[in-house]
Design a protein around this nucleic acid. Sequence first.
DNA 1: TTTGCCACGTCAGTTTGCTGTCAGCTTGAT
DNA 2: ATCAAGCTGACAGCAAACTGACGTGGCAAA
Lengths: 218, 218
Amino acid sequence: MRVLLVEDDVILGEAIRDSVAAHGHGVDWVKRLDEAGLSLDTVAYDLVLLDLNLPDGFGLKFLKELRGKGSDVPVIIVTAQDQIGVRIEGLDSGADDYLVKPFDLDELTARLAAVARRYAGQPNPELDVGEARVDLTRKVARIGDKQIELTAREWAVLETLLRHRGAIVSKPDIEDSLYEFGAEVESNAVEVYVSRLRKKLGAKVIETVRGLGYRVAA
Amino acid sequence: MRVLLVEDDVILGEAIRDSVAAHGHGVDWVKRLDEAGLSLDTVAYDLVLLDLNLPDGFGLKFLKELRGKGSDVPVIIVTAQDQIGVRIEGLDSGADDYLVKPFDLDELTARLAAVARRYAGQPNPELDVGEARVDLTRKVARIGDKQIELTAREWAVLETLLRHRGAIVSKPDIEDSLYEFGAEVESNAVEVYVSRLRKKLGAKVIETVRGLGYRVAA
DNA sequence: TTTGCCACGTCAGTTTGCTGTCAGCTTGAT
DNA sequence: ATCAAGCTGACAGCAAACTGACGTGGCAAA
């Protein structure tokens, strides 16, 4: 399951991201509403965790506009405002649920599980990636009948590339999806993982765009 | 097949009764535990559907007493309490299966069909798990002729893994199936249960995917 | 009540294999 | 031809996972 986290607080954001990731879901973390809009336009998310107190705008307005555009992605509002009026307004604006800070992370994973249950009812989307077929949800990859084993980091890189399938993904972007914010990458780790993925999935699946990044053909 | 339905909610009770009847089974519907006791003393039922939240007593206690009297009629618990602790307790008390409200009626008929198969003398769907054969419905496992005894929590872990057979199941997901939300797991309990299952079922049945979780090969 | 038994959760010491790093090589642009 | 960018085999370190052992508590039999 792929989750978009919209949260400007670094401490809380990290905690939420780690918790969600530990449950095996992919997490994209943005800190502003305009970034959120961009991500939502390009990626099909299964759930949005939306903080209402963001520096660059009003979350509720954003949520209303999102619904106005016809999106029905489940949205859980996360906020410090526990006033009942805001809560009502949030649900009126199209939120599916409401979490008031500070909240227990278990509280969050419980809601997450509820959404995941709904999501699990859908057939698993298997993607063709070169010779291989991959299932990002179940973390299963195979070429023909042969099962391919990918490690955690390899899945992370592949997922990032596939999420922007057809587009060029820069190395720093991949690093950001691999490590926490501010992590020092003093090496060519991304190149190494691309190399490992190619060895497992076939040399042609990941294309190098010299000076810009990598791309998986759509 | 003759089914005893113990359910005080009229709406839900009617829905269940109609659904079961539509599948060609006979249904007796009682709304209190004392009635249920009476019916069980006089009629040989093939299956009991037991709501735990009844006005006149505790379903679990009733179930334990029933088992204490030597009855081995299959019992499926139907309840709104979706806390895992209750679920474990229910299975410990001698229930054969567990349905959490609100549930799909298809869900019910599927379990019903499993019981019906057993009733008809046909082999229950036994799963091959490595060297072992397990029957999740009857909670029976064996290797060759040798019966394997699994504890309640071992069954819970194995069931979770088999429900997602072929997919990688994260440790937090397994924990969620083991404990209620909010339960602090300050240890490596999941690892320990995996270890115990491997010792009983064979080392190769549960595969470790480092950093992601566990998997039972499809 | 006492006794014994067993499932459960915890811990510590050990094992495992992923991960990040580097060095030397290849490739592509100019 | 030259240089920068990218590729990949190898390897040590370390965090994740394994497992034997133990204390506790609940349940049942005596």
